[in-house]
Amino acid sequence: MTDNDVAVVRPKQRSSGAPPGPAASAPSMRPERVRGRARRSIRSRERWAALSFLSPWLIGLLAITIGPMIASFYLSFTDYSLGYGEWVGGENYARMLDDPRLANAIKVTAVYTFVSVPLQLAAALLLAIVLDRGLRGMAFYRSIFYLPSLLGGSVAIAIMWRQVFGTEGLVNQVLAIFGIQGEGWVSHPDYALGTLIILHVWTFGSPMIIFLAGLRQIPTMYYEAAKIDGAGVMQRFVSVTLPLLTPIIFFNLVLQIINSFQSFTQAFIISSGKGGPADSTMFLTLYLYDQGFTQFDMGYASAIAWLLLAIIAIFTALNFLMSKFWVFYGDND
Protein backbone atom coordinates (compact mmCIF):
# COMPACT_ATOMS: atom_id res chain seq x y z
CA MET A 1 0.00 0.00 0.00
CA THR A 2 1.29 3.44 -0.79
CA ASP A 3 0.12 6.85 0.22
CA ASN A 4 -1.13 7.52 -3.26
CA ASP A 5 -3.64 4.68 -3.44
CA VAL A 6 -6.56 6.90 -2.67
CA ALA A 7 -6.71 10.54 -1.99
CA VAL A 8 -7.02 10.01 1.70
CA VAL A 9 -5.18 12.53 3.73
CA ARG A 10 -3.22 11.43 6.71
CA PRO A 11 -3.11 13.90 9.53
CA LYS A 12 0.56 14.58 8.86
CA GLN A 13 -0.29 16.05 5.48
CA ARG A 14 -3.63 17.32 6.51
CA SER A 15 -2.97 21.06 6.50
CA SER A 16 -4.27 21.29 2.94
CA GLY A 17 -7.59 19.58 3.59
CA ALA A 18 -8.29 20.27 7.24
CA PRO A 19 -11.15 22.55 8.12
CA PRO A 20 -10.27 25.93 9.56
CA GLY A 21 -10.32 26.22 13.30
CA PRO A 22 -8.08 25.67 16.28
CA ALA A 23 -6.31 22.79 14.60
CA ALA A 24 -4.91 25.02 11.88
CA SER A 25 -2.39 26.91 13.91
CA ALA A 26 0.35 28.88 12.19
CA PRO A 27 3.65 27.03 12.09
CA SER A 28 5.51 30.22 12.97
CA MET A 29 3.96 30.25 16.43
CA ARG A 30 5.48 26.91 17.46
CA PRO A 31 7.67 27.03 20.56
CA GLU A 32 10.71 25.74 18.66
CA ARG A 33 10.71 28.84 16.58
CA VAL A 34 11.04 31.20 19.51
CA ARG A 35 14.61 32.41 19.77
CA GLY A 36 17.27 32.76 22.45
CA ARG A 37 16.63 33.28 26.14
CA ALA A 38 12.85 33.05 25.81
CA ARG A 39 13.31 29.63 24.29
CA ARG A 40 15.55 28.47 27.14
CA SER A 41 13.06 29.62 29.74
CA ILE A 42 10.23 27.84 27.96
CA ARG A 43 12.35 24.72 27.93
CA SER A 44 13.02 24.94 31.64
CA ARG A 45 9.38 25.65 32.39
CA GLU A 46 8.45 22.61 30.39
CA ARG A 47 10.92 20.49 32.34
CA TRP A 48 9.51 21.58 35.65
CA ALA A 49 6.01 20.93 34.40
CA ALA A 50 7.07 17.47 33.27
CA LEU A 51 8.55 16.77 36.67
CA SER A 52 5.36 17.79 38.42
CA PHE A 53 3.22 15.67 36.09
CA LEU A 54 5.51 12.72 36.54
CA SER A 55 6.07 13.00 40.28
CA PRO A 56 3.46 10.48 41.48
CA TRP A 57 4.70 7.98 38.96
CA LEU A 58 8.35 8.61 39.85
CA ILE A 59 7.71 8.09 43.55
CA GLY A 60 5.83 4.88 42.83
CA LEU A 61 8.54 3.75 40.46
CA LEU A 62 11.30 4.19 43.01
CA ALA A 63 9.53 2.93 46.12
CA ILE A 64 7.15 0.26 44.88
CA THR A 65 8.76 -0.99 41.70
CA ILE A 66 12.50 -0.38 41.44
CA GLY A 67 13.22 -1.03 45.12
CA PRO A 68 11.59 -4.46 45.15
CA MET A 69 13.14 -5.17 41.75
CA ILE A 70 16.61 -4.56 43.11
CA ALA A 71 15.72 -6.73 46.07
CA SER A 72 14.54 -9.52 43.81
CA PHE A 73 17.67 -9.21 41.68
CA TYR A 74 19.70 -9.58 44.85
CA LEU A 75 17.58 -12.56 45.89
CA SER A 76 18.36 -14.26 42.60
CA PHE A 77 21.96 -14.59 43.82
CA THR A 78 20.92 -16.20 47.11
CA ASP A 79 19.19 -19.39 48.21
CA TYR A 80 16.49 -17.32 49.88
CA SER A 81 13.63 -19.29 51.39
CA LEU A 82 11.05 -18.36 54.05
CA GLY A 83 12.99 -15.43 55.43
CA TYR A 84 16.46 -16.96 55.22
CA GLY A 85 19.02 -16.66 52.50
CA GLU A 86 22.72 -16.87 51.85
CA TRP A 87 24.76 -15.57 48.94
CA VAL A 88 25.33 -18.31 46.40
CA GLY A 89 26.73 -16.25 43.53
CA GLY A 90 25.60 -17.23 40.05
CA GLU A 91 24.54 -20.69 41.09
CA ASN A 92 20.85 -20.12 40.33
CA TYR A 93 21.65 -18.90 36.84
CA ALA A 94 24.05 -21.76 36.21
CA ARG A 95 21.36 -24.18 37.30
CA MET A 96 19.03 -22.91 34.56
CA LEU A 97 21.32 -24.23 31.85
CA ASP A 98 20.77 -27.74 33.10
CA ASP A 99 17.07 -27.70 33.87
CA PRO A 100 14.96 -29.59 31.33
CA ARG A 101 11.69 -28.51 32.98
CA LEU A 102 12.70 -24.87 32.53
CA ALA A 103 13.52 -25.44 28.87
CA ASN A 104 10.13 -27.08 28.44
CA ALA A 105 8.43 -24.16 30.19
CA ILE A 106 10.06 -21.68 27.82
CA LYS A 107 8.90 -23.71 24.84
CA VAL A 108 5.34 -23.99 26.13
CA THR A 109 5.17 -20.26 26.84
CA ALA A 110 6.55 -19.36 23.42
CA VAL A 111 4.11 -21.59 21.55
CA TYR A 112 1.22 -20.23 23.58
CA THR A 113 2.19 -16.62 22.96
CA PHE A 114 2.92 -16.81 19.26
CA VAL A 115 -0.21 -18.74 18.43
CA SER A 116 -2.77 -17.15 20.72
CA VAL A 117 -1.85 -13.47 20.41
CA PRO A 118 -2.29 -13.12 16.62
CA LEU A 119 -5.50 -15.15 16.73
CA GLN A 120 -6.91 -13.14 19.59
CA LEU A 121 -6.06 -9.79 18.00
CA ALA A 122 -7.52 -10.86 14.68
CA ALA A 123 -10.76 -11.87 16.39
CA ALA A 124 -10.84 -8.65 18.40
CA LEU A 125 -10.24 -6.45 15.35
CA LEU A 126 -12.77 -8.29 13.24
CA LEU A 127 -15.49 -8.05 15.88
CA ALA A 128 -14.62 -4.42 16.64
CA ILE A 129 -15.04 -3.46 12.99
CA VAL A 130 -18.28 -5.37 12.70
CA LEU A 131 -19.62 -3.81 15.89
CA ASP A 132 -18.51 -0.33 14.90
CA ARG A 133 -21.01 -0.26 12.07
CA GLY A 134 -23.74 1.27 14.17
CA LEU A 135 -26.37 -1.36 13.45
CA ARG A 136 -29.29 -1.94 15.76
CA GLY A 137 -28.47 -4.00 18.83
CA MET A 138 -24.74 -3.37 18.65
CA ALA A 139 -24.46 -2.27 22.27
CA PHE A 140 -26.04 -5.59 23.19
CA TYR A 141 -23.61 -7.64 21.13
CA ARG A 142 -20.70 -5.62 22.41
CA SER A 143 -21.61 -6.42 26.00
CA ILE A 144 -22.10 -10.09 25.26
CA PHE A 145 -18.76 -10.36 23.49
CA TYR A 146 -17.07 -8.71 26.39
CA LEU A 147 -18.62 -11.05 28.94
CA PRO A 148 -15.90 -13.73 29.00
CA SER A 149 -13.33 -11.09 29.90
CA LEU A 150 -15.44 -10.00 32.84
CA LEU A 151 -15.42 -13.44 34.33
CA GLY A 152 -11.68 -13.41 34.91
CA GLY A 153 -9.97 -16.53 36.14
CA SER A 154 -12.88 -17.54 38.29
CA VAL A 155 -13.44 -21.01 39.67
CA ALA A 156 -16.62 -21.34 37.67
CA ILE A 157 -14.78 -20.78 34.38
CA ALA A 158 -12.22 -23.41 35.29
CA ILE A 159 -14.90 -25.98 35.98
CA MET A 160 -16.96 -25.03 32.95
CA TRP A 161 -13.96 -25.13 30.64
CA ARG A 162 -12.98 -28.58 31.82
CA GLN A 163 -16.51 -29.78 31.24
CA VAL A 164 -16.82 -28.27 27.77
CA PHE A 165 -13.53 -29.74 26.55
CA GLY A 166 -13.74 -32.90 28.62
CA THR A 167 -14.02 -36.42 27.27
CA GLU A 168 -17.81 -36.26 27.39
CA GLY A 169 -17.98 -32.50 27.03
CA LEU A 170 -19.94 -30.23 24.75
CA VAL A 171 -17.23 -30.12 22.09
CA ASN A 172 -17.15 -33.89 21.74
CA GLN A 173 -20.93 -34.06 21.70
CA VAL A 174 -20.95 -31.65 18.77
CA LEU A 175 -18.16 -33.60 17.05
CA ALA A 176 -20.13 -36.80 17.57
CA ILE A 177 -22.91 -35.36 15.40
CA PHE A 178 -20.41 -35.37 12.55
CA GLY A 179 -19.28 -38.85 13.47
CA ILE A 180 -15.96 -37.72 14.90
CA GLN A 181 -14.69 -39.40 18.04
CA GLY A 182 -13.18 -36.61 20.14
CA GLU A 183 -10.36 -36.69 22.65
CA GLY A 184 -10.22 -35.59 26.25
CA TRP A 185 -8.95 -32.24 25.06
CA VAL A 186 -7.99 -30.66 28.39
CA SER A 187 -6.32 -33.76 29.72
CA HIS A 188 -4.29 -34.94 26.76
CA PRO A 189 -0.72 -33.63 26.71
CA ASP A 190 -0.94 -32.96 22.97
CA TYR A 191 -4.10 -30.86 23.13
CA ALA A 192 -4.26 -29.23 26.57
CA LEU A 193 -2.25 -26.22 25.45
CA GLY A 194 -4.55 -25.88 22.47
CA THR A 195 -7.58 -25.48 24.70
CA LEU A 196 -5.75 -22.80 26.67
CA ILE A 197 -5.06 -20.98 23.41
CA ILE A 198 -8.76 -21.14 22.59
CA LEU A 199 -9.53 -19.85 26.05
CA HIS A 200 -7.17 -16.94 25.48
CA VAL A 201 -8.72 -16.13 22.10
CA TRP A 202 -12.17 -16.36 23.63
CA THR A 203 -11.38 -13.52 26.05
CA PHE A 204 -10.79 -11.04 23.24
CA GLY A 205 -13.01 -8.48 24.95
CA SER A 206 -10.27 -6.18 26.22
CA PRO A 207 -8.41 -5.67 22.95
CA MET A 208 -11.79 -5.44 21.20
CA ILE A 209 -12.86 -2.56 23.40
CA ILE A 210 -9.56 -0.80 22.82
CA PHE A 211 -9.97 -1.29 19.07
CA LEU A 212 -13.50 0.08 19.29
CA ALA A 213 -12.30 3.15 21.14
CA GLY A 214 -9.63 3.58 18.48
CA LEU A 215 -12.10 3.21 15.63
CA ARG A 216 -14.28 5.89 17.16
CA GLN A 217 -11.36 8.27 17.09
CA ILE A 218 -10.97 8.08 13.36
CA PRO A 219 -12.50 11.29 12.01
CA THR A 220 -15.51 10.60 9.78
CA MET A 221 -14.30 13.14 7.26
CA TYR A 222 -11.56 10.76 6.17
CA TYR A 223 -14.14 8.18 5.24
CA GLU A 224 -16.20 10.79 3.49
CA ALA A 225 -13.19 11.97 1.57
CA ALA A 226 -12.38 8.40 0.60
CA LYS A 227 -15.97 7.79 -0.44
CA ILE A 228 -15.99 10.85 -2.64
CA ASP A 229 -12.90 9.45 -4.27
CA GLY A 230 -14.84 6.26 -4.96
CA ALA A 231 -13.12 3.95 -2.49
CA GLY A 232 -15.00 0.75 -1.63
CA VAL A 233 -15.40 -0.77 1.79
CA MET A 234 -12.28 -2.91 1.55
CA GLN A 235 -10.29 -0.04 0.13
CA ARG A 236 -11.47 2.27 2.87
CA PHE A 237 -10.48 -0.34 5.43
CA VAL A 238 -7.02 -0.78 3.98
CA SER A 239 -6.25 2.85 3.36
CA VAL A 240 -8.10 4.64 6.14
CA THR A 241 -8.93 2.32 9.02
CA LEU A 242 -5.84 0.18 9.10
CA PRO A 243 -3.18 2.91 8.96
CA LEU A 244 -5.00 5.09 11.48
CA LEU A 245 -5.48 2.10 13.72
CA THR A 246 -1.84 1.05 13.72
CA PRO A 247 -1.01 2.73 17.05
CA ILE A 248 -3.87 0.81 18.63
CA ILE A 249 -2.87 -2.44 16.96
CA PHE A 250 0.64 -1.87 18.16
CA PHE A 251 -0.57 -1.09 21.66
CA ASN A 252 -2.62 -4.27 21.79
CA LEU A 253 0.16 -6.33 20.31
CA VAL A 254 2.75 -5.18 22.82
CA LEU A 255 0.39 -5.68 25.71
CA GLN A 256 -0.95 -9.04 24.67
CA ILE A 257 2.53 -10.41 24.11
CA ILE A 258 3.58 -9.25 27.55
CA ASN A 259 0.36 -10.60 29.03
CA SER A 260 0.61 -13.97 27.49
CA PHE A 261 4.22 -14.36 28.53
CA GLN A 262 2.96 -13.71 32.03
CA SER A 263 -0.08 -15.99 31.72
CA PHE A 264 -0.79 -17.52 35.02
CA THR A 265 -4.46 -17.91 35.87
CA GLN A 266 -5.20 -19.65 32.56
CA ALA A 267 -3.02 -22.60 33.44
CA PHE A 268 -4.62 -22.83 36.85
CA ILE A 269 -7.84 -23.48 35.02
CA ILE A 270 -6.66 -26.69 33.44
CA SER A 271 -4.21 -28.10 35.92
CA SER A 272 -4.92 -26.25 39.19
CA GLY A 273 -1.49 -24.73 38.79
CA LYS A 274 0.37 -28.02 38.36
CA GLY A 275 1.23 -27.40 34.71
CA GLY A 276 -0.14 -30.78 33.72
CA PRO A 277 -0.91 -33.03 31.99
CA ALA A 278 2.74 -34.09 31.86
CA ASP A 279 4.04 -30.50 32.02
CA SER A 280 2.31 -29.64 28.73
CA THR A 281 0.81 -26.42 30.15
CA MET A 282 3.76 -25.56 32.38
CA PHE A 283 4.16 -21.85 31.63
CA LEU A 284 7.27 -20.05 32.72
CA THR A 285 5.32 -18.14 35.35
CA LEU A 286 3.84 -21.35 36.65
CA TYR A 287 7.26 -22.94 36.93
CA LEU A 288 8.52 -19.84 38.70
CA TYR A 289 5.60 -20.05 41.08
CA ASP A 290 6.15 -23.76 41.63
CA GLN A 291 9.80 -23.21 42.50
CA GLY A 292 9.22 -20.21 44.73
CA PHE A 293 6.02 -21.10 46.49
CA THR A 294 5.67 -24.87 46.42
CA GLN A 295 9.35 -25.78 46.68
CA PHE A 296 10.20 -22.68 48.76
CA ASP A 297 13.16 -21.89 46.52
CA MET A 298 12.65 -18.15 46.18
CA GLY A 299 16.24 -17.58 45.07
CA TYR A 300 15.84 -19.75 41.99
CA ALA A 301 12.36 -18.34 41.40
CA SER A 302 13.82 -14.82 41.37
CA ALA A 303 16.42 -15.89 38.85
CA ILE A 304 13.69 -17.35 36.64
CA ALA A 305 11.74 -14.10 36.97
CA TRP A 306 14.71 -12.17 35.69
CA LEU A 307 15.03 -14.59 32.80
CA LEU A 308 11.35 -14.02 32.05
CA LEU A 309 11.83 -10.28 32.27
CA ALA A 310 14.77 -10.48 29.88
CA ILE A 311 12.77 -12.52 27.37
CA ILE A 312 9.82 -10.14 27.51
CA ALA A 313 12.12 -7.13 27.23
CA ILE A 314 13.77 -8.55 24.12
CA PHE A 315 10.45 -9.14 22.42
CA THR A 316 9.09 -5.76 23.41
CA ALA A 317 12.24 -4.06 22.13
CA LEU A 318 11.92 -5.98 18.84
CA ASN A 319 8.32 -4.89 18.68
CA PHE A 320 9.26 -1.27 19.11
CA LEU A 321 12.06 -1.50 16.58
CA MET A 322 9.76 -3.01 13.99
CA SER A 323 7.01 -0.55 14.80
CA LYS A 324 9.00 2.17 13.01
CA PHE A 325 8.12 0.44 9.76
CA TRP A 326 4.41 0.08 10.20
CA VAL A 327 3.00 2.17 13.03
CA PHE A 328 1.76 5.62 12.19
CA TYR A 329 1.20 8.39 14.73
CA GLY A 330 -0.86 11.51 14.22
CA ASP A 331 1.58 13.82 16.00
CA ASN A 332 4.81 15.15 14.58
CA ASP A 333 7.31 13.40 16.83
Binding site: A63, G67, P68, I70, A71, L75, T78, Y80, G83, G85
Partner: peptide
Amino acid sequence: AGIFGAASAPLLAACGN
Protein backbone atom coordinates in the same frame (compact mmCIF):
# COMPACT_ATOMS: atom_id res chain seq x y z
CA ALA B 1 15.13 5.37 53.70
CA GLY B 2 13.63 4.33 50.40
CA ILE B 3 14.68 1.75 47.92
CA PHE B 4 17.51 0.41 49.99
CA GLY B 5 15.08 -0.38 52.71
CA ALA B 6 13.04 -2.44 50.36
CA ALA B 7 16.14 -4.01 48.92
CA SER B 8 17.79 -5.04 52.12
CA ALA B 9 14.75 -5.78 54.22
CA PRO B 10 14.11 -9.33 52.98
CA LEU B 11 17.43 -10.55 54.24
CA LEU B 12 17.16 -8.68 57.48
CA ALA B 13 13.99 -10.61 58.06
CA ALA B 14 16.28 -13.58 58.43
CA CYS B 15 17.85 -12.03 61.49
CA GLY B 16 14.44 -11.03 62.76
CA ASN B 17 13.16 -14.52 63.35
